[in-house]
């Protein structure tokens, strides 16, 4: 039987990989995918905790998070398409118009 701590550490490792992706990459689309990975890592801990407590609230939360993530994907990708039309690039390091 796999312990709860192993599931949580797996979720933590996936979340950290997502954090590193968001912090280090400059391609907007890869940034976006790292964000999705972080959401999924949290979902995994929800499902693992639901399994170990025997309560199904975690499943409901994952359901809601998935719906919100799908919304975020639609809006985020529409923004990137608009951004690409303006700048011919999705490099977030070049988006410094407000900083200058």
């Amino acid at each position: 039987m796999v312990g709860l701590n192993e599931w949580l550490v797996l979720g933590g490792v996936l979340f950290l990989i997502g954090v590193v992706g968001v912090l280090t990459r400059s391609n907007g689309l890869i940034l976006f995918m790292s964000l999705e990975l972080m959401l999924n890592a949290v979902n995994l801990t929800f499902v693992a905790l639901a399994r170990y407590t025997g309560r199904m609230e975690g499943h409901v939360f994952v359901f809601l998070v998935t719906a919100v993530a799908a919304c975020e994907a639609a809006v985020g990708l529409a923004l990137f398409v608009g951004l690409f039309r303006l700048h011919k690039s999705v490099d977030v390091d070049q988006l410094n118009a407000m900083g200058d």
């Binding site: 039987m1 709860l4 701590n5 949580l8 550490v9 933590g12 950290l16 399994r51 170990y52 407590t53």
Partner: peptide, 19 residues
């Protein structure tokens, strides 16, 4: 990360009986 993972590793729980 290392701190958080160490904290997660120390969680202990028995799997519940599922319906």
């Amino acid at each position: 990360g290392v701190k958080a993972l160490a904290a997660l590793w120390n969680v202990e729980a028995e799997p519940a009986e599922l319906p």
